[in-house]
């Protein structure tokens, strides 16, 4: 096989050589190295060796390792994200609890305020009632006393009027019956 390819290549080289001669300067190794069949088995053999080596290196060592690294990283990222998610949930929870506590405290405060207000109101009402009662008692007493005073005053006026009338009648020289004078005065006062 090597012989025939060598011959063929030789022929090619010869032809090319003629052409190159005709062209003047001769590239001694005319022809494309790519088409030099002699080197094909060599290249193919070493290529196959190289490819097999690369395939074994990559598929046995490198690719599983890189895949593992990437998977690890993906896992780490997923875990971190999950942890962050959890922490965030916790924070939300804490905020909710805080808000709840705030609401509770406010309600408590409101309740206390309301209670205090109610108590004060009760005291106030009691005090007011007491004061009212006292005032009413005092008012009643005062009214009684005023009535008494008024009654006293009216009697005095009647006595004074009777005395004055008896004196006037006396002065006029008329002997007046005390009973008559008193009746007349009482009648006038009533009128």
């Amino acid at each position: 096989m090597a012989n025939t390819t060598t011959e063929a290549a030789g022929a090619v080289t010869e032809v090319a050589g003629h052409a190159a001669e005709a062209g003047g300067h001769a590239a001694q190794s005319a022809g494309m190295p790519q088409l030099n069949w002699e080197t094909f088995p060599n290249q193919i053999f070493w290529l196959v060796v190289a490819l097999v080596l690369i395939y074994l290196i990559l598929s046995k060592v490198a690719l599983p390792r890189i895949g593992g690294i990437l998977a690890d990283r993906q896992g780490a990222i997923t875990n971190d994200i999950a942890a962050a998610e959890e922490l965030k949930a916790k924070a939300v929870e804490a905020e909710k609890a805080y808000n709840q506590a705030l609401i509770d405290a406010r309600e408590e405060a409101n309740k206390i305020v309301a209670e205090a207000r109610a108590e004060i109101q009760k005291d106030l009402d009691k005090a007011t009632a007491k004061a009212d009662a006292e005032i009413a008692a005092k008012t009643a007493e005062s009214a009684k006393r005023i009535e008494e005073i008024r009654a006293g005053a009216a009697k005095n006026v009647e006595e004074v009027a009777r005395d004055a009338a008896a004196a006037i009648v006396d002065t006029m020289g008329v002997k007046a019956d005390a009973k008559t004078v008193a009746g007349a005065v009482t009648a006038r006062l009533k009128g």
Binding site: T39, P41, N42, Q43, I44, F45, W46, L47, V49, A50, L53, I54, I57, L58, V61, A62, L63, R65, I66
Partner: peptide, 23 residues
């Protein structure tokens, strides 16, 4: 077919580079 040539050399260097980078 078994002669070490410059093709062998450069394929070998390529393999070494691949080992260097990926391994």
């Amino acid at each position: 077919w078994y002669t070490p040539t410059n093709a062998t050399l450069w394929m070998g260097i390529a393999i070494l580079c691949i080992i260097g980078l990926f391994v």
